[in-house]
């Protein structure tokens, strides 16, 4: 579960986020939308403590992320899978090695790493490409490898920042379907995109940012296929209990 309480983030004088409040229950699929520069990347970075909030509190799985000491941050990150655009795959490492950075850090030996890589790559349909190098893969395949890398620790939360940014519409649809599939297995998925035309399913949530403020928060009703503002939507299962 992820909760933001009155979160703000400033870079010097520039306000990247202001008064952000939301609560994402476990297993939800969230589209984080908004134009370029709206603050999507900043919001995601706050979740895995690549940035710390200037104001407010952030809870991730019950932990106050903003107050975790710096040397404990790596342990938070190991529980969150991140697919990020700017630092994608490492060219000089094989697909298998790219996927198993975390097991390697944890001291797993090579045979175990290969087994874990095969397992993660199978989830994205690429288990036959373990020994290939990134340059030998298509753009869509590369993004799948990046997703497999994020899944390697079987995280409860998967974060993806513009995962379809470089892909053509058809490949984008495939990648989004892959995220839906991962979400069906119980993983919370937060996917940032500035592309408003991505396919959605019932019960998927939309958070929309504009100039650092949350301007929309709705869930698509699975029956009517209409959007319902979260405040009026189905009661929060945790809150009613």
């Amino acid at each position: 579960m992820i909760q933001f309480f009155d979160v703000g983030k400033r870079f010097g004088d520039r306000v990247a986020l202001a008064d952000v409040n939301f609560k994402i229950p476990r297993g939800q699929f969230v589209f984080l939308r908004g134009p370029s520069g709206a603050g999507k990347t900043t919001l995601l970075k706050l979740i895995y403590r690549a940035e710390s909030p200037s104001e407010g509190q952030i809870l991730v799985n019950g932990r106050n992320v903003g107050s975790i000491p710096k040397r404990k941050v790596p342990f938070l990150r190991r529980t969150i899978g991140v697919v990020f655009q700017e630092f994608s795959l490492i060219e000089r490492r094989t697909v298998s090695d790219n996927v198993t950075y975390l097991p390697r850090i944890l001291g797993e030996r090579r045979p175990e790493r290969r087994r874990l890589a095969a397992e993660a790559l199978a989830k994205v349909g690429l288990d036959h490409l373990q020994d290939a190098f990134p340059a030998e893969l298509s753009g869509g395949e590369q993004q799948r490898v990046a997703i497999a890398r994020a899944l390697i620790s079987r995280p409860q939360i998967l974060i993806a920042d513009e995962p379809t940014g470089n892909l053509d519409p058809e490949l984008s649809r495939d990648i989004i379907s892959l995220f839906f599939e991962i979400n069906r297995q119980g993983t919370t998925v937060i996917l940032a995109t500035h592309n408003p035309s991505l396919r959605r399913r019932g019960r998927d949530r939309i958070l929309k940012l504009e100039s650092g403020r949350l301007v929309e928060d709705r869930i698509m009703d699975p029956i009517s296929a209409e959007d319902i503002p979260v405040a009026l939507g189905p009661p929060d299962p945790v809150a009613t209990r």
């Binding site: 895995y48 690549a50 040397r71 790596p74 342990f75 938070l76 990150r77 190991r78 991140v82 990020f84 630092f87 490492i90 490492r93 950075y101 975390l102 850090i105 890398r149 390697i152 620790s153």
Partner: peptide, 16 residues
């Protein structure tokens, strides 16, 4: 630097 960034993001400690 890209590899270092990846190691940080997946939870590599500074020591490592």
């Amino acid at each position: 630097r890209r590899e270092i960034a990846v190691q940080r993001l997946v939870g590599g400690t500074e020591f490592y």
